[in-house]
Design a binder for these strands. Structure first.
Lengths: 349, 349
DNA sequence: AACGGGGACTGAAACGTATAACTAATACGT
DNA sequence: ACGTATTAGTTATACGTTTCAGTCCCCGTT
């Protein structure tokens, strides 16, 4: 591999000069235009590629962002990664995948983060337990952190999430505009994401002058179809003669199951029942009928998250310690309602 | 951050000794049990974390595996990543996401690969153009490569794919066992994955003593619903009175559309028509009825791919050049049929 | 008693870059 | 003509490790 020394020798200058020309941040030292040109020409000629590892070593900054995530919402994660990578590339940072399991964080994972002198970290969709563990470790080692999730506010790092209150409000206002007054809600397990959406649902409903009976607001599962199916059935059964005319779901997967159960009960969709999803996954377009859902712009979340951790890392000192704490910064990314075929005006009755 | 020098000073030994104790590959030099113990104790006490960057620098091996992929089949990619990470962790390698777009590879991406002195690379699901570009670059720089895809055989690197011939054969034998004799096929765009599956379909069908008329074998789209829908409609229309009793699809998404179109035409599922998907994505379980499909074990592909590139990288010399070429090694990962509700015996007529 | 040999450890030289500190040469105001 | 700035570079050191080449000492052999 060609080194700066090789380039220097060929161009008849010192290695330091090459470093100043190719290093980028050469506002400290002036290099004449002709020397610069010559060095650049030789570098190109020799096919020089700078060595980021040596660079990281001497500056003490690794320019590596660790990504710790879970495979659950794979599509969302990919979009977040794409967004984060975009920003990372612009700043010559690198994304490393370090953890891909919902559950526990083992010591080896923490060790890898420290061994590679992570410049910062991104956490997406981990369990509360895993989350707490990482939070503690990164805080102790002063590694800037961004969490993309609806976790409780943290003392270390930035928190980024989609504006669920707005998203649910968009759904409710869409449904009320269609004429719905009987609206039910089915969400996932409480604690992580669903809790927030359920509260948002109640708020938005109240703001529109409605209330839903308790059996129309249910906490079910995110992904287990049998549980969801049982809950949906229970909701219909307990409703007796006054069925809801619309069901708001906290996930596209849940909405898919609602569609299936409703059809099995002989309801026409969306004429007899409107159903909304949440997340705008690729699934939603393949539902029958295609789901009206809320787009969360995970790409944007990734971009914003990366931008923040990079900014914090850059402010740090030369030995990798973050400068500011940025305690509990909380960023909300706007949502957007995607209207498709699963919502319609309620039946005349 | 604590260095080996700090540990050495505290333990009253030289830095070299610490390196021999903590370095792992210390079969070269004997260290007495008591010295080893003392060094380990001090390292633990001081919270020493070894510096992988300095390590990479001096050994000339980065222990970094670059991942270049596309967001299309996000779920598959996550599973591949999970598998690759498992193997990478075991070998103290690291996974970096370097590219996340189906289309072109820009110079900056190539530069990043070289600047970070990639130990090896994993390519998944890129366009043929992007693929050719990377293939050339990695070959020129002697970076070991694994491609997880049904691309044409390459001269550099390892090729890993699921055994589509076996997968389709499993589907056909499942359908014939149920009694089907009228089987149609709808696949995605030719060239990448679909071409192979279509050929496998013809082969398996012929082996079972059947032939399908031309309008029962169609090349459609992987993801564009309108195109798929039009093709499915066309297939039914051109079939006249003799409809197929089963439709084999080369993707779960395609199968979802077939289900919808068939239902819209008044067919009962699966009583009147059996449908099979391919890939066993999370989608497939949410279909109505749930899809019978073929599991591809992407996790295993990731594991195998990582294992191979690491093995090749390790055989290389100290300056990162790969030792062996491993020309056109072609590995097939077995598939598994997942029987669910979308297949049943054909109607009596 | 001299010598060989091996076990246990140390010294020092890399690896490729960034950068502080220094130097040489030129320009400028008086 | 002289001191001072400024420009355009160079020299040398440091970053934290791996690893080669010694060094030292003790033990067994002749």
């Amino acid at each position: 591999m060609v080194t700066m020394g090789d380039v220097a020798a060929r161009a008849g200058v010192s290695q330091a000069t090459v470093s100043f020309v190719l290093g980028g941040s050469s506002d400290r030292l002036k290099i004449s235009a002709q020397t610069r040109e010559r060095v650049l020409a030789v570098a190109r000629e020799l096919g020089y590629q700078r060595n980021q590892i040596a660079r990281a070593m001497v500056t003490g900054k690794s320019r590596i962002i660790g990504v710790l995530t879970a495979p659950q919402a794979s599509e969302n994660i990919i979009n977040i990664l794409a967004g984060a990578m975009e920003t990372a590339n612009e700043n010559e940072y690198l994304l490393k995948v370090l953890h891909l399991s919902y559950d526990s964080i083992d010591d080896a994972t923490i060790a890898r983060c420290l061994e590679w002198r992570l410049a910062s970290a991104l956490i997406v969709g981990l369990s509360e337990e895993a989350h707490a563990r990482l939070h503690e470790a990164f805080r102790a080692n002063r590694i800037p952190l961004a969490v993309i999730d609806n976790v409780p506010p943290t003392e270390w790092g930035v928190r980024i999430r989609s504006d669920d209150e707005e998203g649910i409000a968009q759904v409710i206002s869409h449904l009320t505009a269609l004429g719905h007054r009987q609206i039910a809600y089915i969400g996932g397990r409480p604690g992580l994401l669903s809790g927030w959406r359920e509260a948002s649902f109640r708020t938005a409903l109240a703001a529109a002058g409605m209330v839903a009976p308790p059996h129309w607001i249910r906490q079910s599962s995110w992904g287990d179809q049998r549980i969801i199916e049982a809950d949906v059935q229970a909701m219909f059964q307990q409703s007796g003669d006054t069925l809801p005319t619309a069901v708001v779901c906290s996930a596209d997967t849940i909405a898919m199951v609602v569609l299936r159960v409703a059809r099995a009960r002989g309801l026409r969709l969306p004429a007899d029942l409107s159903v909304t999803g949440y997340s705008n996954g690729s699934l939603s377009g393949f539902a029958d009928p295609p789901l009206t859902t809320v787009d969360q712009s995970f790409t944007e979340m990734g971009r914003v998250a990366a931008a923040h951790v990079i900014a914090i890392a850059e402010r740090g000192d030369a030995r990798g310690n973050a400068g500011d704490t940025v305690d509990g910064l909380d960023i909300r990314i706007p949502t957007r309602l995607i209207e498709r075929g699963s919502t319609a005006p309620p039946p005349p009755g």
